[in-house]
């Protein structure tokens, strides 16, 4: 049992627990513990997690407030619970990514390692490509780009990603098939 695998088990357990706990106080405790475990990286992880969930949480919260207002109930406890839970799980995930070498955590199974390799290389390729789209627009802009140009550039990037993702999915399933993952 290596340390990375222990962390993986711990992470899965913690996420599962976070979905079971309903009391906002305990969720807040969990968040505090997760940040404590993050040590010096706590502020960075918290900021990263806040940014990551901002849009999602805002959208959900607003629609929930609207719903609660229409039904004339108090939304606050539910809202706090929901936001705390999403934030806690996100923090746990970022902490996990920062601490754990997934490849070592999964090294007990060659199959899982292979799947992880496929997913990881794809995520990496996409992140690099996303950087390239951003940098290319910057490189071609003599003035700060207009909104319409930013919009067009992201639309082009999105279209490119979808096309590449479809292509990559076909290839990945072929790769998996050739390794005997589907026995049909």
């Amino acid at each position: 049992m290596n340390l990375d695998r222990a962390y993986l088990g711990f992470y899965l357990g913690a996420v599962f627990a976070a979905t079971l706990i309903h009391d906002p106080v305990w969720l807040a405790c969990g968040l505090g513990l997760a940040l404590l475990a993050s040590g010096r990286k706590a502020m960075g992880i918290l900021r990263q997690a806040l940014f990551a969930v901002l849009t999602f949480n805002l959208l959900i919260s607003l629609s929930y407030i609207l719903m609660a207002w229409l039904q004339d109930v108090s939304p606050w406890v539910t809202l706090i619970r929901l936001n705390l839970r999403v934030l806690l799980i996100t923090c746990l995930t970022f902490l996990f990514i920062a601490r754990v070498n997934l490849f070592r955590a999964l090294d007990f199974s060659p199959g899982l390692t292979f799947v992880l390799g496929l997913a990881y290389s794809q995520a990496l390729t996409f992140r690099r490509a996303q950087d390239d789209f951003r940098l290319a627009l910057a490189s071609r802009s003599l003035k700060p780009p207009r909104l319409i140009d930013r919009y067009r550039a992201s639309a082009a990037a999105a279209a490119w990603f979808i096309e590449k993702a479809l292509h990559a999915a076909t290839q990945s399933s072929q790769a998996l098939r050739s390794r005997g993952f589907f026995n049909d």
Binding site: D132, A136, L137, A153, A155, A156
Partner: peptide
């Protein structure tokens, strides 16, 4: 750019 797709959006 190495990937010309990154530059095309018009």
């Amino acid at each position: 750019f190495q990937n010309p797709d990154a530059m095309l959006f018009n």
